[in-house]
Design a protein around this nucleic acid. Sequence first.
DNA 1: GATAGGATGCTCT
DNA 2: GAGCATCCTATCC
Length: 208
Amino acid sequence: MVRLSRSALAESSDVVAQALLGVILESEVGGARVAIRLTEVEAYGGAADPASHAYRGRTPRNEVMFGPAGFLYVYFTYGMHWCANVVCGPEGDGSAVLLRAGEVVEGVAVARVRRPTARNDRELARGPARLAAALGLTGADGGTDLLDPRKPVRLTGPLGSVASEDVATGPRVGLTKAAETPWRFWVRDDPTVSPYRAGALRRGGSPA
DNA sequence: GATAGGATGCTCT
DNA sequence: GAGCATCCTATCC
């Protein structure tokens, strides 16, 4: 186990992703407190990873990815969902770890209100957009320093608390590029891990 | 239980 | 204008 620090998060994204499993992410937005234990993450590289938002260089949206490690990157996708990432790697690299799922360990009642469609507590944060919704995260929270205890969103607990034999790996979910890279990491046999779905055609039509 | 298809709007080309 | 790091509902076992 390693103490959670900015320098520890500045390692490459695949190393940081595994280490983040078991870490607690807590938020106090809107006056309510919710904490989640991370059970599933995905690593995204910088300019060298075609699936990363940083692949095409720095833009207004992904600017925080190129900043120092330990900051929160939140983006809006599919016209309705927010997804949360932890910036990692050396400053200027553009690497990040997508937070895909977790177990709500505090503030379950609040999370239930934010996620009315969840049929049980395991589904409260099972999926990246669901995790962000359960914590109440939106684009307004992007750029928060997750290592600053005075901020409303922060990471706590040691890195690497899940033993390596309990960490499973596989391809990343829902991508259309570099989907085969095994940079998804999850806690083996944990019921809050999201179901795998391969990337597929989205809109408009019939194949051929 | 599994799978297929539609919703919806921001971002970059 | 096309594409998207998704979720929900309906439907069929």
